[in-house]
Design a protein around this nucleic acid. Structure first.
Lengths: 239, 239
DNA sequence: CGTGCTTTTGAATAGTATCAAGGCCGGTGG
DNA sequence: CCACCGGCCTTGATACTATTCAAAAGCACG
């Protein structure tokens, strides 16, 4: 952990702190901490006290909810510019955990600072509110897919969800599709789908045979995105 | 639809509008509309344009997402004091629908008014933001239950969710438990669970035999709430 | 006393989870 | 350099759970 650099010079264009007044950006700068996490490390864990708000400066994080016999459900995925851990006020504890999916840098602003910033920077607060409402919309779509889709559909959905959050690799584009910009285990994909490793593998193999995807090293190439969407068209989802 | 009465005199203690300055409460009063909906009527429907924000003054509303062959998933339940329909800005359309579960009164404030109110009333905005973050927490719990629970567990969860949102009837208390303050069809319970009518009925029948609940007219009496919670204890949920 | 709607029960089917076993690959140590 | 180990990935067989289909009973309403 270290005292962080300037927020004004921060390379992350999506960070909400930018919507504060310049006076308040400086205020937050002096009070925030910046922490680096290795792949697999927890940014926070279920049961810990909520002491503030996390802003992902650079990285990929999964928000997981550990349920029955170690089976973990991925509640949402987050990347640079996203917010983590604002789920209630001081004294409450996290109901879920956040784990780095690759080496990540996260800024932390403690409750007292952030609460005052909310009251003094309405535009900042509104942006954050809109972020939450967007998150809600996304998670409502996921509610539907978890409850009504077949496993095949869920796996297709998970791939498109990964694309929505993390996008494609710039250098991964060929005439045979695009490479997902994330390295994720079958178990974690199962965690997104609410199923198990084996089912994910079976369906990925099916997709590969149908030439919808290709496995490329540790990453997945989306060969035929529109057909993948087609699998889900009856749900008319808005990712 | 009619021009509404005073917000200051409003009997609904949970309404967020109360957090505005008195000047702004009057401003909102003059710009809002108050609409009554009959049971089964839509407050808004998927595909309509988002023009503002709904505040439930008095009633019970289900937010539904219609999916595969008319099977509808209940994304969340809302009651007096809750907010509906703030899922994006002007020009976007609702991805979901909101339907009155009983005769309800809902106040509507259009986008221009509410956006300005946000910027001028920081306390109001913060309260709303916290409401959304609380909603997120709730829906994240539901993600887990939809993906990992058995149907039996889901039905138990649905009953406790109904209790959390709508509570018990004041006059429904006896030494044999308490009456849920809502009239809901088996199909709608199935919509909460993400299963079908038949499974709900089978499990409700099981619960009745086990003396956890009792069917009383069109309503359900929770006879043994703690055992119902016990069914879900492995998930250590926070409702 | 039908008519239509919700609820209930049963039986057949399809889909999914679980269990078991083997393959692949990168790293480590002899 | 090769053999071994452990992690992740893959496949197949089996058991189970949930869905679907069908049919009938209960109930409110005109």
């Amino acid at each position: 952990m270290k005292k962080a650099g300037s927020c004004i010079d921060c390379f992350n264009p999506g960070c909400f702190i930018k919507y504060c007044s310049s006076k308040w950006i400086k205020e937050i700068e002096t009070h925030k901490t910046e922490v680096s996490y290795k792949k697999g490390q927890a940014v926070f864990a279920a049961g810990e006290f909520v002491n503030g708000l996390f802003f992902i400066k650079d990285g990929q994080v999964k928000v997981v909810s550990s349920g029955l016999n170690d089976k973990e459900q991925i509640v949402r995925l987050a990347t640079s510019g996203h917010i983590l851990g604002h789920r209630g006020s001081n004294g409450e504890t996290y109901p879920i955990s956040a784990v780095a999916m690759k080496d990540s840098v996260v800024c932390f602003v403690k409750n007292e600072t952030i609460s005052e910033a909310f009251l003094k920077n309405p535009e900042f607060t509104v942006k954050l509110m809109l972020f939450y409402s967007k998150e809600l919309r996304g998670i409502e779509a996921r509610i539907k897919y978890l409850s009504q889709m077949t496993v095949r559909e869920k796996v297709a959905f998970a791939l498109l969800y990964l694309k929505t959050i993390f996008g494609y690799q710039a250098q991964g584009t060929t005439n045979k599709g695009q490479l997902l910009n994330v390295q994720i285990s079958r178990t974690d994909i199962a965690g997104i789908c609410g199923t198990n490793e084996e089912q994910v593998i079976r369906n990925l193999s099916d997709f590969e045979q149908e030439k919808l995807i290709a496995k490329e090293g540790k990453k997945i190439r989306i060969v035929n995105e529109s057909t993948l969407y087609g699998i889900l068209k009856v749900y008319n989802l808005q990712l």
